[in-house]
């Protein structure tokens, strides 16, 4: 398979958020600002990349009947690594993402890629797939977070763009997440049609 195609499919064609509609919980939960979306996306990308690599390396050693528990243990280990490292070196980001970091374990994108892709493909293809899907997820979260932050608190990456007096608070709250996500999915669908 063409590696570039394999990598770039995560952005539009098979974007986990806009097209596959996976991992909705962290997507809606953390995207109240662009920086939160970026942190969450990169953390997930790291976990995806590492778990895809490990799963594709040991796929033939794992008996079929215990593959899911094995994958979950591998994913959970990498998530814990991310959590510890973030707590140690990026405490402020860790605080704002909070509960959503350990929840990467149950993010269906990660297990989905391990089960549907990495357990059937070789090391390089799996690593490229993990990176592509992960960055596609990051792209979606930053876009969603950026739009919500801009409309809801008049800032972008914490820089004030316009006065707080004109913001539409709805967008940093949960309903705003659904509204923005809906419009983005519509736009992506339109782009895909061409």
């Amino acid at each position: 398979m063409n590696q570039w195609k394999n990598f770039s499919k995560g952005f539009i064609k098979e974007n986990p958020v806009f097209v596959l509609l996976l991992g909705m919980c962290p997507t809606l939960g953390v995207t109240s600002s662009a920086i939160n979306g970026l942190g969450m996306g990169l953390a997930t990308t790291f976990v995806l990349l590492m778990s895809n690599i490990v799963v594709s390396l040991i796929k033939s050693l794992i008996p079929d009947k215990v593959r899911i528990p094995s994958f979950i243990v591998i994913i959970a280990s990498f998530v814990t690594v991310v959590q510890l490292v973030m707590q140690a070196y990026l405490p402020s980001l860790y605080q704002s993402l909070g509960l959503f970091i350990p929840l990467i374990v149950v993010n269906c994108i990660v297990l989905g890629r391990a089960e549907a892709f990495a357990s059937k493909n070789n090391l390089l293809t799996s690593a490229v797939d993990g990176l592509g899907i992960g960055l596609g997820f990051t792209f979606a979260l930053v876009l969603l977070g950026g739009i919500r932050e801009f409309l809801g608190s008049g800032k972008l990456f914490d820089f004030t763009i316009y006065s707080e007096n004109y913001v539409t608070l709805l967008f940093v709250l949960a309903p705003g997440a659904f509204i923005v996500l809906g419009y983005l999915i519509a736009i992506i669908n339109r782009i895909k049609k061409d």
Partner: peptide, 9 residues
């Protein structure tokens, strides 16, 4: 020090 209140509110 620590909170999880709604951003912007």
């Amino acid at each position: 020090l620590e909170h999880a209140e709604t951003p912007g509110l």
